[in-house]
Design a protein around this nucleic acid. Structure first.
Lengths: 332, 332
DNA sequence: TTGAAAGCGGTACCAC
DNA sequence: GTGGTACCGCTTTCAA
């Protein structure tokens, strides 16, 4: 079995209180006993129990993360960055994929609360807010990540999606496009914000988007493929399409090519998120990039601060997106 | 604050032992008190502390997963499937990306042990085995996932990589190719096993692979791009290339197209893993598929069994890969 | 059918 | 400097 603090204390001929102090560098212990205890710990290969520490010390050093789907490229990159930042601070992540389902959302929320995570990152739009209010009662700090809604008492770390949509819109305008389509990502509310920004941009040229020009697709390839087909077979074909995720954009490009439509010569496509697959596309995808490194960094910092000093003022950090110009948009 | 079992007991006018029993459906409690306690628990919104349960009950209901990089499409899909299966059994996952670095590998191993995870899934080749031996002392069940090496006492759940390489090789042969190149994935040993299978296949036509025909690339796009260039500029260009991961294959295809080389007309490319990006490629990537659903399912089942009955005999589950024929290989 | 009490492996306060 | 000890919140005998 795993050695306990009692085993160490006995072997070192000191009390567990003393051992605890050398583990945590607290109190005043003589150099001699510190050495002795340390040596014993090493030879026994002793490691304090995280569980016991959590129970006594009130911290689990674990952060819960709710995402729609970890296999989605955007979220797996986010997970990686969050993990990187958390690790440096000694925290581990429990990542939970809700698949846009209320029951999963709730069961994972309960799971995280039960595991007593020190903080929660919500990166998927809650479907039913009610149960989330429990988090506040529990005093667990929360960051809404990439979601900008005042759902309950949380920090917010996100990208300015209005701006992002605006960037996409004005870029396409600047490239001479006047006939657009927009594909939203079903289940993610920031699609709507991006759409709003897009509309704002084109309204400056007195253009508007009719409902027929707005499509919505789940983040699955099959669904995206169907939407792509219906856009491309529509008689009033747009010259440029704004897709609210790179994945949808890639599928659209692929489908266009299958139908003999040249991208970007005959059809321009712009994505959103700048995930790795944007570079893998042919033509490489022009897209709106979110500053995910900075988002992740701020998120973890914010949470760790909130953990150590509860009652910190809630923050709202909004970073700016940026156009990533590649090959999928042409002059019209 | 979070209500404790004491709060519930007091409100229900019973002892904590009784409450504990109704929580766990153990012992014999009268219907009446069960009802009473349950009602109280609901109105108080009581949830037992996972930490305390773990300390008293010896289980954390957490499984640790070591992967090279969660943002790698193969591993994010794996993570998703593992999570799915674990969730159904009430377990959460702590996913750790080692980035092929010894220090990360060790720090995460220590982290998982400290957190007292109930089991560990190792999906990245350990660089330094030594510290892993601690796991055995701790009696924590382990599955080597997609790794087939007798490192220490572990279960093994993997795909037959020899067979996989063989499938790739014989398929290319059958398509009339005789001049090959193989790109290994640096840091993953099963690349070598796949290579071995590939060599076996072509040896049946009395063909061999020289060292000059074998390349090795990290799983990063920049590196893959460099390797791709050096393959494609080599005067003795192959007619078919076997890439040990889909990502490398995609980059290779992209680079080939940039140089005006038609895929698959002038160059055939076959990948490995059948990750989502294989479908996103143009042409769509022919690849060797691993049965990841089944792998994940077996892994979690095996571990949960081992947790509940320690000392279970170690198992070695080897599943078969399968050719996924798409568009990137032509008749030569 | 219920409850008292001894752990589980630490932390932290208070004596000495 | 060091140690005794009361928790932390739950599980699990063992008695009653």
């Amino acid at each position: 079995m795993k050695p306990t603090i009692y085993d160490v204390a006995k072997a070192a001929e000191v009390s567990i209180a003393t051992v605890s102090k050398v583990i945590n560098n607290t109190g005043r212990i003589s150099e001699k006993t510190i050495k002795k205890v340390r040596t014993i710990m090493e030879t026994m290969d002793y490691q304090p129990s995280g569980v016991a520490t959590a129970l006594a010390g009130k911290q689990t050093f674990t952060i819960g993360v709710l995402v729609p789907e970890i296999s989605n490229p955007f979220f797996s990159e986010i997970a990686k960055l969050l993990e990187d930042n958390a690790r440096e601070a000694g925290y581990a992540l429990i990542i939970c994929s809700t698949y846009y389902q209320v029951d999963r959302e709730h069961m994972y929320l309960d799971l995280l609360l039960k595991k007593q995570v020190d903080a929660i990152i919500i990166a998927t739009d809650p479907i039913d807010i009610e149960p989330f209010k429990k988090i506040n009662k529990r005093q667990v700090p929360v960051v809404l990540f990439t979601i900008d809604e005042l759902l309950f008492s949380t920090h917010v770390v996100t990208t300015d999606d209005i701006k992002g949509g605006y960037i996409a819109g004005s870029y396409l305008l600047q490239k001479g496009h006047r006939n657009f389509a927009v594909v939203l990502e079903e289940g993610r509310k920031n699609s709507l914000t991006r759409l709003k920004g897009f509309k704002e941009a084109i309204s400056e040229k007195n253009l508007i988007l009719t409902d027929q020009q707005i499509y919505s697709s789940k983040s699955s390839m099959k669904e995206a493929r169907n939407i792509a087909k219906s856009i491309l077979t529509n008689p009033d074909k747009p010259t440029a399409i704004f897709c609210c995720t790179d994945l949808i954009a890639l599928v659209l490009i692929q489908e266009a090519k299958k139908q003999g439509i040249l991208v970007p010569e005959e059809l321009s496509v712009i994505g959103y998120d700048n995930t790795v697959i944007a570079e893998l596309s042919d033509p490489e995808l022009t897209t709106v990039a979110q500053p995910i490194n900075a988002l992740a960094k701020h998120t973890i910092e914010l949470l760790i601060n909130s953990i150590s000093s509860p009652g910190t003022e809630l923050q709202r950090i909004v970073l700016l997106p940026e156009l990533k110009e590649r090959e999928s948009v042409n002059l019209n």
